[in-house]
Design a protein around this nucleic acid. Structure first.
Lengths: 250, 250
DNA sequence: TGTGTCCAAGCTGTATACAATGATAAGCCG
DNA sequence: CGGCTTATCATTGTATACAGCTTGGACACA
């Protein structure tokens, strides 16, 4: 689980944070169904906090897009269609593409360029001669770091914030279809392609090829789309293993 | 009965809504300076509400990007640089462009197409023989409606939400540099160009030219960028008349 | 005069009590 | 027997009290 903004060690927001993580886990874990109303008193008791910090957490999750307001009051779990997930992935691609384009057009500081190139080399090390020997967990971690670094490469705080916001929805995250799927060979093989795209994106940025960098980053995100299609059409049993995919209705 | 229900509905979240609008107006009106801490008790007294709904409003405004959390607790007014405003405008262009592209690629229902074409004709009626006779207020209103409709043209709820989210920041709104500037002739003349772009965007969508629609929508947003440059370089006295521009520091 | 420490005031985060509103089910009338 | 009204209940929205933390300043000492 990604650390929340600000230091977690602050005991002051421990209650609000507990509510945020608790409700999020409950929703993503399938503890409540889409459309179902989330009773505040029930949740507060279940999580061991009072209603006040819980309401803050619910409001935030509504902004994140995981919950929706009920007209008569309160919140319900938001339901998603397959089209919604496609669009969320496309949206992330568009925003990451914009971050890449701006980085190329405006130029990147040598330090940042060196850092992200080093990250690519680290990612290379995860691949072994035999696919089954691959350092999967490390790849997942480094991949998340790569995308985070890409978002900030343009040096625009506004852009970095928005890209990271677009990855908040669990199934839109760059790691969405990676975690807990190391045993699916098809996913492993696609990582070779993904890593190639990582390299090309950075290369395009370095050579100031903005349009190419944008197109590559968009296409890179569409790998997730292919993975989603695989899950939905070939092996629906995987739905329960990708966080948030249980919220898909149709 | 129905009308009464409406008033009751408004009254239900009247406190939270009053807090939201009140704090927003206060910040945009320049009542508080960037970086300044917003004391909850002071705000609650000033707005005539209690701290609980006020905190909900503050949390929401932090999500909107108008406020930022202070590490030690509480919220402060967020400061923006000129680069931030540029990026916010660029971001809106990217998202509106994506909405336009998807609409072109996926096709638009005849009803929606007819509606937005009708809107363009309505916008045409705002122009008169002499620029000073232009129906400015009506143009502003119809322009906002056009952009709102464009966001939903692709039929993707996900995309519509995100586009509208990107227009939340006051200086990123399609109407940001329109309101209260009817006396500046330079702005009026640019509206002719803007309306031409409106027409071209819809035309591209109708002809399924996705890439062109995207490029046009992006360029259309950059009109706001030109307006911003005019304000910052030619006539800084206008800063106080564009909502939110008082938050710019450098 | 500069600096470190300590205290107090104010602030935020949290819990809880209260008010208002929507939902549900029972009962009455046609 | 069915539809409408009404009353009760559950649930959310709001206010307020309290506790812990941060901050700012005053004061003592080097």
């Amino acid at each position: 689980m990604v650390a929340e903004k600000g230091t977690v060690d602050r005991k002051r927001d421990s209650q609000a944070l507990k509510g945020l993580l608790g409700v999020r886990d409950l929703v993503l874990g399938g503890g409540v169904s889409p459309g179902e109303r989330l009773s505040e008193v029930w949740l507060a008791e279940k999580l061991g906090i009072s209603r006040t910090p819980l309401r803050a957490a619910l409001a935030r999750l509504e902004q994140e897009g995981l919950l929706e307001q009920i007209p008569s009051g309160g919140y319900a779990v938001r339901g998603f269609t397959t089209a919604d997930v496609f669009d969320a992935i496309e949206l992330r691609g568009v925003l990451e593409g914009t971050a890449a384009r701006l980085a190329a057009e405006r130029g990147v500081t040598p330090a940042k360029l060196k850092a992200i190139k080093g990250l690519i080399l680290e990612l290379d090390k995860c691949f072994r001669d035999r696919p089954e020997d691959m350092l999967f967990a490390q790849y997942v971690e480094l991949n998340a770091e790569f995308h985070s670094m890409l978002a900030g490469l343009a040096g625009s705080d506004m852009m970095r914030r928005e890209v990271e916001r677009a990855t908040q929805l669990p199934f839109a995250s760059p790691s969405a279809f990676l975690e807990k799927q190391e045993d699916v060979l098809a996913f492993r093989l696609s990582l070779v392609h993904a890593q190639r795209q990582h390299r090309d994106i950075v290369s395009a940025i370095e050579m100031r090829e903005g349009s190419r960098a944008e197109a590559l980053a968009r296409e890179h995100a569409r790998l997730a789309r292919h993975n989603l299609e695989f899950v939905m059409e070939e092996d629906r049993s995987l739905i329960t293993r990708v966080p948030g995919l249980t919220l898909i209705s149709t």
